[in-house]
Design a protein around this nucleic acid. Sequence first.
DNA 1: GAGTGGTCTAGACCACTGT
DNA 2: CAGTGGTCTAGACCACTCC
Lengths: 276, 276
Amino acid sequence: MEPQVTAGERPVKIRIADDIRLRIERGDLPPGAPIPTIQELTERWEVSPRTARDAHALLRQMGLVTGRRGSVLRVRTPRRMTVRSSDRHQLEKDLVLKSEAERARIGTSEIEMQTPIDEFEFRCVADQVPADELIAAAFGVAPGTELFRRTFEKTDRTTGALHEWSVSYIPVDLIKDNPDIIDNADQPWPGGTQHQLYTVGIEITRIVDEVTSGMPTTVDQQRWELEDGIPLLKVRRISIDDRERIVEVSDAVFPADRTKLVFPTPLKRFDEPRSD
Amino acid sequence: MEPQVTAGERPVKIRIADDIRLRIERGDLPPGAPIPTIQELTERWEVSPRTARDAHALLRQMGLVTGRRGSVLRVRTPRRMTVRSSDRHQLEKDLVLKSEAERARIGTSEIEMQTPIDEFEFRCVADQVPADELIAAAFGVAPGTELFRRTFEKTDRTTGALHEWSVSYIPVDLIKDNPDIIDNADQPWPGGTQHQLYTVGIEITRIVDEVTSGMPTTVDQQRWELEDGIPLLKVRRISIDDRERIVEVSDAVFPADRTKLVFPTPLKRFDEPRSD
DNA sequence: GAGTGGTCTAGACCACTGT
DNA sequence: CAGTGGTCTAGACCACTCC
């Protein structure tokens, strides 16, 4: 068979993949349905197995199909989305003035309510690092400024898969008045940042979430147990206090196939009745 | 040369890609630097050209390198990010009560300020469609409910590349009292949704943005002129009025390599001075 | 025109699934 | 154990870039 030259046309692998993609989008191939095997594609399109496989790979990279080695590829079934709302910022602040017992109870139940705690392992590592250029720019301080850093991980106890990951930076200068923060930094509950800052007289009055997205590295894919074609949502949280200082910068990562970020914006009411 | 069997090891193409990835992450290969060619990789790793190419493909899929056909692949230089803040929701509402002249002036200058208007072509198509299951669920209405739909596109006048895309749905029942909305629907400025709803007595009091991310299809890649390894950010905007009705649902898409979504959250002040 | 990556062939071997 | 996809070989040809 002579080579299927791309004579001004789109590559064959793309034509094959698009054909299947359209069948999926039309609902002709519903979620869970097997897509044509490599064998079938080589016969139907008269291409080498390698080209048929490239078409399969394209469909995986678009996040449309999944399948482990050895089984047929199937149309991806959407996963249940975990909602993460910026409402939690105010909820956390509301906890600051409550008693410690209440904080522990409400904090884990209301804000982190969704999962039985036993299934997961929390890990929190705290240390102190000089700011590199990127994080220094985020704070608007000089590179080298000492930062208190905490990295937080939630992993599935059985599979070892990562479920949550974030890192938080606070300028050491801001919190050095309360050595408790640094000494007891390894608590497994990250919701307490606002309370901790409150103990050194800092009130956070504004939080800015910056959302971007990017593809995982091969290592990220393994750690998060991500399938092909699934991006990562990246959220940088910037906490600003009543003196307009940036007091905390936090970066968090969420797999896009199981996370929905929600940001409610209340609008000011019109003061006067309208005239029409 | 005998086949490089994956003897319990990670695949060779992944080992090659990870080696280069680490050099990039260490800064050893800075943005713009050429990565090793296929030829070099075949010699250095003693693999077939195809395997070296697969390593290249992996690096592209991770969004780490770029390059057109015929030129060496280079480490990706981050693009300038266009910021899109949820502050625009309040800004748009503020415009509602202003005069038409002011709306036109401020609307295009403050909210859509960033780009010279001549370089882009705006296109807005309006029609009326019955709600499919998905969008009906978003509104909480029965499928088949008539919806007023507007799709909005901003394309680069020279290259034809897509720069903005969104679609907006409003239940026809809500706006049928003002036929002007439907008749004059093709205005190129999408910022006026709140004003248009105001003309039929609807005041939007809350807007909820839902953010997810996914990979583009091959067609999306062409239309947006997206390089490999760049996800799309997807924002569903739900507008709720003073009677807690969902009055508009809008879906927008943004390329993740040039868009940063920003969501400021003001927090309530502590009423009383703290006691310590 | 030399060099580069992109597509494709016609296989081989392997890992894994599912029966 | 038959069937499937994943990896890899050793090339060929093509499109494109850069000099």
